[in-house]
């Protein structure tokens, strides 16, 4: 019996990047690393992903359990807002892709295929997104977050784009873990940190509001989010007002 056949089959179903083979994987990897001279930044990776997939923008959201940490990188103001909105509102394609562990596609936020994201959909449309897609970031059974893509025109990804995006999500997820594996003990790898927005100002504000209201920090964060939502603002801008003492919760 020829063992090369089953060996090939085994290698393609293997979930870990280390054992993955195949022409598409090779091609995507070559495109993503082109011009990087072996040194990849989160921002550089996001930009390469945007170019490889032919979309308008990319954001990488990092999550764990119930907690969204923030974005490793975004490619423009619109992706920055898409990520920020999801962080503020706790809903959206990347949040769903992570929580449901599956690919999420909304080809037209103006005429959605499913009634969801009542707050996110309108806000994302307003900042300039029309179609949004999100792919879970995972390495084997380890779930890291989601790769978010948007287009300024309605429509699904082509079969080819979709297949490439699955590979891209694998590459990005492996890159995150490989990079963190070399981090100093107790710290976050510098390459994961340098382009990231972990919403630190929101946590500063939550600490302050917890004292202002005499509530827990978690409750204070909920109050900040509710206030931002109620006033059509982002969490970051409300948090900045709190930290700069332009606004207090009483």
């Amino acid at each position: 019996m020829d063992t090369t056949l089953w060996r090939a089959a085994l290698v393609t179903v293997s979930p870990a990047g280390v054992l993955m083979a195949g022409e598409r994987h090779e091609r995507v990897l070559a495109m993503l690393s082109a011009g990087s001279e072996g040194k990849v930044s989160a921002r550089g990776l996001c930009e390469a992903v945007t170019a490889v997939l032919g979309v308008n923008g990319t954001g990488v959201m990092l999550m764990s359990g119930e907690v969204a940490y923030g974005s490793l990188c975004t490619t423009n103001e619109i992706t920055k807002m898409i990520e920020e909105l999801q962080y503020s509102l706790g809903e959206g394609p990347s949040v769903d892709a992570y929580n449901q562990d599956r690919v999420i596609a909304e080809p037209d936020l103006a005429d959605p295929v499913a009634a969801r994201w009542s707050a996110f959909a309108a806000a994302a449309l307003q900042v300039g997104a029309r179609a949004v897609f999100a792919f879970p970031l995972r390495v084997g059974s380890v779930r890291l977050g989601a790769l978010g893509l948007y287009a300024d025109r309605p429509g699904y990804l082509s079969d080819d784009q979709h297949a490439d995006a699955l590979v891209v999500a694998d590459v990005v997820a492996s890159w995150v873990l490989d990079t963190q594996a070399r981090a100093p003990l107790g710290g976050v790898a510098a390459a994961l940190d340098s382009d990231a927005d972990f919403h630190l100002v929101a946590h500063n504000a939550a600490g302050m509001v917890s004292i202002q209201l005499g509530v827990s920090v978690a409750e204070a964060m909920l109050r900040l989010r509710a206030y931002a939502f109620g006033h059509g603002r982002t969490l970051t801008s409300v948090a900045e007002d709190v930290v700069e003492r332009r606004f207090r919760f009483e």
């Binding site: 107790g186 710290g187 600490g207």
Partner: peptide, 22 residues
């Protein structure tokens, strides 16, 4: 590795919250 990343990020969040409290 993923647990270490979560630990590092959680520590940072708690420090930022504590800064706000103080």
């Amino acid at each position: 590795t993923n647990e270490q990343l979560s630990y590092a990020l959680n520590s940072r969040i708690i420090i930022e919250q504590a800064k706000g409290i103080i």
